[in-house]
Design a protein around this nucleic acid. Structure first.
Length: 460
RNA sequence: GACCCUUUCAUCUAGUGGCCAAGGAUGUUGCGUUUUCAACGCAGACACAGAGGUUCAAAUCCUCUAAGGGUCGCCA
């Protein structure tokens, strides 16, 4: 059975890079009827927060990703890690190192000055003398002294790291708290993880973790290291690039399926296909199709996907989503024609709510440029005449509004634009938007009249 | 500095020696449709990082160079 995991450290919100690796892991598990587990890497007590944890869970919930069983907290597993530390110590596979932080720093600086890779010099590896007094030792693992540590990465292929590149790294700090690479290896093994999918910034941790696996006699999982997501300039994605927090996308009016579709196509592909439902992603996802190279974030494409999914979205759901943006169409008898007129032209829910607001509320202001362009001398009399027609007739449907308009321009012998542009301005405050017939049907005759009168009094 | 990874249109990508004078998508340009904007349809521009090999044949294999990224913590 395939078992995958997502292992965030709760030090901040869930960012889109994290969501993508989580998505890949989740898809792989769900595709194979396996398990997707959540593990919280909270061994660094100082930097963790419950808020961050909640934010991550909330993001999972929003995109609709679920995990199996209870989330595992590393902070509650210290006794387990301690057992393995004792075991390695007893077996002589790990040892106590009494070097102080200051000594270590000095050594590092010296090595840097010599332009060699900083390395612990293993001075306590075979130490048998009397330890210095008053020093709490750290525990270090005995890494291999020679040879090559190799593994087959599911994305990158065969990776070989010389043993000389992996020093006897610390597995427990002087206060006894175990370190990251140690607990990750143990937990992945104990949780039965078969496939690790993570960012390739962890590539260098893998040989270290392999050292742990081997010392403890655990079977190795398959490793898949996914390249990073860069910003639109091709640089590392950072907070200053705007939305990196998953929940920020919700606030900006993105549909979760659009974000997931966008992310799944960043570094992964299936032929020429661009649109993937969650179901299709599950069926088609395969880590072997993950790209080796980093990809850049591209807002335009996300926007395109979002507008696609807004168009696809059924009205009932859209109406529910719109409530978060201050639009309540639940009891609006015209909700279907309102959405029909607007959802095709919206890129986000924020967009959509703006367009709907223009329909259901009188214009609060008129676009200056539009006013200049559409409101000329002669406009007043045309608009007044049109009000007269509206009052004498009582159009209801968009067809009758349509005929009314056509007859009006025919009778007055004017171009359509002479009435259409000012009318649009009166109704919406701007010159873009849905068809006039549709707008008037939605707005209703009386309100149309009112809006025209408003424009006239505003312009005079 | 050392080690590791990466490199196809502006961007996401297809491509595993002949089907590639490189395909799809976003964006962009033009046209059509529309009173307008969008959506939609059609058409166009835009790429194999460079240099050497290997081969009848190379985007694909090899070597070197260059550029970008990652890692070198008692952080995760």
């Amino acid at each position: 059975m395939i078992v995958t995991r997502f292992a965030p450290s709760p030090t901040g919100f869930l960012h889109i890079g994290g969501l993508r690796t989580a998505l890949f892991s989740w898809l792989l598990a769900r595709k194979n009827g396996g398990k997707f587990l959540l593990r919280i890497e909270d061994t660094d007590q100082a930097r963790n927060s419950e808020d961050a944890m909640q934010a991550i869970l909330q993001a999972f919930d929003w995109v609709g990703m679920d995990y199996d069983g209870e989330a595992l907290y590393q902070s509650k597993r210290f006794d387990i890690y301690q057992q393995y530390i004792d075991q390695l110590l007893n077996e002589g596979k790990a040892y106590k190192c009494y070097m102080s932080k200051e000594e270590l720093d000095a050594l590092r600086e010296e090595q840097m000055a010599q332009k060699i890779r900083p390395h612990y010099d293993r001075r306590y590896r075979d130490f048998t003398g009397t330890p210095p007094a008053g020093v709490d030792p750290v525990i270090r693992i005995k890494a291999p002294l020679e040879g090559v540590i190799s593994f087959e990465d599911g994305v990158k292929g065969e990776i070989n790291i010389a043993a000389s590149e992996v020093d006897d790294f610390i597995i427990a700090r002087s206060d006894g708290v175990p370190t990251y690479n140690f607990v990750v290896a143990i937990d992945d093994a104990l949780m039965g993880i078969t496939d690790v999918i993570r960012g390739d910034d962890h590539l260098y941790n893998t040989p270290k973790q392999i050292v742990i696996y081997q010392a403890l006699g655990f079977d190795l999982p398959r490793f898949n290291h996914v390249a990073m997501i860069n910003n639109e300039q091709g640089k590392k994605l950072s907070k200053r690039d705007g939305a990196t927090d998953v929940m920020e996308y919700k606030a900006q009016g993105f549909l979760p399926e659009a974000l997931l579709n966008f992310l799944v196509r960043l570094g992964w592909s299936h032929g020429d296909q661009e649109i993937f439902s969650i179901q299709e992603m599950m069926e088609l996802f395969d880590p072997k199709d993950i790209n080796k190279s980093a990809s850049s974030y591209n807002l335009d494409k996300l926007l395109w996907l979002n507008s696609h999914y807004i168009k696809e979205c059924n009205n009932a759901r859209l109406i529910r989503q719109l409530q978060d943006f201050g639009i309540n169409l639940q009891d609006d008898s015209k909700r279907d024609i309102i959405l029909k007129a607007t959802k095709e032209r919206a890129k986000t829910l924020v967009d959509l709510s703006h367009q709907i607001r223009l329909l259901i509320e009188s214009p609060q202001k008129y676009d200056d440029k539009a006013l200049k362009k559409a409101y000329k001398e002669g406009t007043v009399s045309i608009l007044n005449d049109f009000i007269g027609v509206l009052k004498s007739e009582d159009p209801q449907s968009k067809e009758t509004f349509h005929d009314l308009l056509q007859n009006f321009v025919a009778q007055k012998e004017i171009g359509f634009g002479k009435i259409a542009q000012p009318l649009r301005l009166a109704l919406m405050g701007e010159l873009s938007g849905a068809g006039l017939d549709e707008i008037m049907e939605i707005v209703g005759r009386d309100e149309v009249v009112k809006r025209i009168e408003n424009l006239i009094s505003h312009a005079s």
